[in-house]
């Protein structure tokens, strides 16, 4: 279980508070207006931003003091998820061999399988620059598969994709997360994405990241903060 215990995060003047827990393997959307602190919340969980107060725990283990590289977390950023000068095989290989050495035969087979799994079969030797935006997202997801971490954070990695492509990617994330049994926290400012993808929603507004609520229930009876964000009348 991922538990945020009395967490306060400094956002340069304003603060963001969170105090809740979420079960492993769930798909959670982090929804709210821009600037509310959605990415800040993910950064804190990933370890890129220190907490002002509180603790973050995973399965009872305290992550609070750990640097990003020691946390059980993989994260996809808005951009820069792949090294542009390395081939896909090299990029994915880094998930298996963080010391940069070439993977063994078994590793090479796993890379090929991961690429095939996301629909990039045989593209090992391509560089990210020669791929479309959607293909780059797929390659990054293939790496997430290889990283095999129990928490997957998505910081709007598909923001630059068109609606159809984005829906496709969300579908793929769902498959990848299911295969790994990973907890997914996905930042979005699009209520449609949240409804399509997430089992639960964390609403971030007014300095508070609210406890996750079942998606159906949340949209059936939106709280005032969500109603304000969606605009009166809702969606």
């Amino acid at each position: 279980m991922l538990r945020l215990e009395g967490v306060t995060i400094d956002m340069g003047g304003a603060t963001l508070a969170a105090d809740w827990a979420v079960q492993p393997g769930r798909r959670v959307a982090v929804l709210g207006p821009s600037g509310a602190g959605k990415s800040t919340l993910l950064d804190a969980i990933a370890g890129f931003r220190p907490l002002e107060r509180g603790r973050i725990l995973w399965d009872g283990q305290d992550l609070t003091g750990l640097p990003p590289e020691r946390r059980p977390v993989s994260i996809l950023f808005q951009d820069g998820n792949l090294f542009p000068h390395l081939t896909l095989a090299r990029n994915l290989g880094l998930a298996l061999r963080p010391d940069g050495r070439r993977p063994d035969a078994a590793g090479i087979a796993r890379i090929a399988a991961a690429l095939a799994r996301v629909g990039l079969e045989g593209m090992q030797d391509r560089r990210p620059g020669t791929l479309s935006g959607g293909q780059q997202s797929r390659a990054a997801l293939a790496r997430v598969l290889l990283q095999e971490r129990p928490i997957l954070l998505l910081d709007e990695p598909f923001a630059a994709l068109g609606p159809a492509l984005k829906a496709e990617m969300l579908e793929l994330v769902r498959d990848v997360a299911a295969q790994l049994g990973a907890l997914v926290l996905m930042v979005t400012h699009d209520a449609g994405d949240a409804r399509r993808f997430a089992e639960a929603v964390v609403l971030v507004a007014d300095g508070i990241a609210a406890p996750p609520v079942e998606t159906e229930r949340l949209f059936a009876d939106p709280p005032p903060a969500l109603r304000a964000y969606l605009g009166e009348g809702g969606h």
């Binding site: 990003p68 590289e69 994260i75 998820n81 963080p98 010391d99 940069g100």
Partner: peptide
Amino acid sequence: YGRLRATLRLTPMAWLRL
């Protein structure tokens, strides 16, 4: 790429070389 480096747990040598 500093954040990507952290999440990939790259070693200092791999970061330098790759």
